[in-house]
Structures are given as structure tokens and as C-alpha cells.
């Protein structure tokens, strides 16, 4: 079995330089998909007439098509749409000067929005109606109660899924190269192709993903512990 270890030693730091791009993709996509997912969750939870079926159909569409297809549609179709929209508004902005990473943020956030929406909706249903009535009884409005009481508890309930979303997002960034965004997989492809050492290049990337995801998961677990402190309390079990 002949594996070029020297290449691995050289390529690894080179590829690792693109980790920030991967992380940027993960973080921005996550923070884009969270509010969108929360909105969809709200619509589905309240079963808002007219909107809710639309949202659910959209969610079914995203869940039912491969990510790579979504990426291709976003990457190839959005510029056209944006260009004609800008033309209508009389702007002379050249859409093609826009950094393609924006398309990547959008395309990657599609799937995670749907997962987050489902998780938050389920979380909201776990939070009993009594919590909501408690909020109303002290004079808070419905939205105030949702924001201060129901939503935080729904989020805590959905935390494990959130961690999963981050992991899946990180793995999905490996497709960003198809949108001309060079992150670690893209870089590996370039390097590997230049000397026909594809296998070794992908070994590097393979290792890097494990490291990145392990670290992200650790961070997430810490965060999860902090916001779910109300479930276990801070004091010793002195239920006097």
C-alpha cells in the first residue's frame, strides 16, 4: 500500500488555512437559518391559516430534494432573478460582481432552516399550555409570553437537534466548491489535482473535518449546559 506521507505533511497546513472559510460558512448559515426556522416553527405551531400549508409544502420540498440540486438551483437561478429584480428597480449594480459566498450562505441554510423549524415546533409543543396561561395571568400579552417563557423553553428542548444541525452544516460545506467558494474540501481538490495525489489530499480533509466537528460539538455542549441550567437548578437538592 503506497501512500505519499510527505505530501500529506505538506498539504495539511495548506488545506488547514481554509478552515476559517468553512467555519464562516457554518456560522453565517446557522445564524441565517435560525430566525427563519423560528418563524416557520411559529407559523406551524399556531397553524396560521394560509401560511401554514405553504410553509409545510416548502419544508417538504426542501426535505425531499438533494442538497446538491438545491445548490445548483440557487447558484444558477438566483443571479438571473436578482439581475432582473435590480433592473426593475433601476439599479445598475452588476450581480455578477457579488461574491459567490452569499449564494453559499443561502443554499446551505435551506436545509438547516427546515430542521430547526421542526425541532422548535416540537419544542414549543412540549412546553405545556400552562406555562402560557401563567404568563397571561400576570398581564403579559401573548407575544410577550412566547418570547420570555415559551420560546426559551422550546429552544432548550430543541438543543440536541441544534447540535446536530451544526454538524450537518459543517459537512454540507464540503459542497461549497461547486459555488466557487474555496473551503477545505475545495482546496484539497485543487492540491490533489495538481499532483494527482487525490487520496492523500482527501485524507487530510477527512482528518480536519473530524477535528472541526469534535471541537464544535464541545462548544455546543458547553452552551447547552448553560442555557438548560433551569432544568437542574444551581442549588443542592434541598427541597425543604
Amino acid at each position: 500500500m503506497r501512500v505519499d506521507l510527505e505530501f500529506i505533511r505538506q498539504a495539511l497546513p495548506d488545506i488547514a488555512k481554509y478552515i476559517p472559510v468553512t467555519l464562516l460558512l457554518v456560522v453565517v448559515s446557522f445564524f441565517l437559518s435560525f430566525p427563519a426556522g423560528a418563524l416557520f416553527a411559529w407559523i406551524n405551531y399556531k397553524k396560521i391559516r394560509g401560511l401554514s400549508p405553504l410553509v409545510r409544502a416548502y419544508m417538504s420540498l426542501i426535505r425531499g430534494t438533494p442538497v446538491i440540486l438545491q445548490i445548483y438551483v440557487i447558484y444558477n437561478v438566483t443571479p438571473y432573478l436578482l439581475a432582473s429584480l435590480l433592473e426593475h428597480m433601476g439599479s445598475s449594480f452588476n450581480v455578477y460582481r457579488l461574491n459567490t459566498i452569499w449564494y453559499a450562505f443561502f443554499a446551505l441554510s435551506l436545509s438547516s432552516t427546515v430542521t430547526i423549524a421542526e425541532a422548535l415546533r416540537a419544542g414549543m409543543e412540549t412546553v405545556g399550555r400552562g406555562q402560557f396561561e401563567g404568563g397571561l395571568s400576570v398581564g403579559m400579552s401573548g407575544p410577550q409570553t412566547m418570547w420570555h417563557i415559551v420560546f426559551p423553553q422550546a429552544l432548550t428542548a430543541a438543543m440536541p437537534v441544534m447540535g446536530n444541525v451544526v454538524v450537518e452544516l459543517t459537512k454540507a460545506t464540503s459542497l461549497a466548491f461547486t459555488m466557487a467558494v474555496t473551503e477545505i474540501t475545495g482546496r484539497a481538490k485543487i492540491l490533489g489535482g495538481s499532483v494527482l495525489r487525490y487520496f492523500e489530499a482527501y485524507i487530510c480533509v477527512f482528518v480536519l473535518y473530524i477535528v472541526i466537528i469534535a471541537l464544535l460539538e464541545q462548544l455546543f455542549k458547553r452552551f447547552e449546559k448553560r442555557i438548560s441550567v433551569y432544568r437542574t437548578g444551581r442549588h443542592s437538592r434541598a427541597k425543604a
Binding site: 503506497r2 495525489r197 477527512f206
Partner: peptide, 29 residues
């Protein structure tokens, strides 16, 4: 399980594609 869980499908595909021949005593690719 952990290692596989942390690997993107694309990367795994390429690893297997270029690497499987290696296992069978040939050159990568």
C-alpha cells in the same frame, strides 16, 4: 461511528473511490 458521523459524504466518496484500489494492493486511483 464517531469518525463516520464526522465525515461528509463527498469526502467519503472520494476516499473510497481513490483509496479502495489501494487496499487491494494497487495504486491509489
Amino acid at each position: 461511528v464517531t469518525v463516520v458521523r464526522c465525515t461528509p459524504s463527498l469526502v467519503m466518496l472520494f476516499l473510497v473511490f481513490y483509496g479502495l484500489p489501494l487496499l487491494v494492493g494497487g495504486e491509489a486511483g
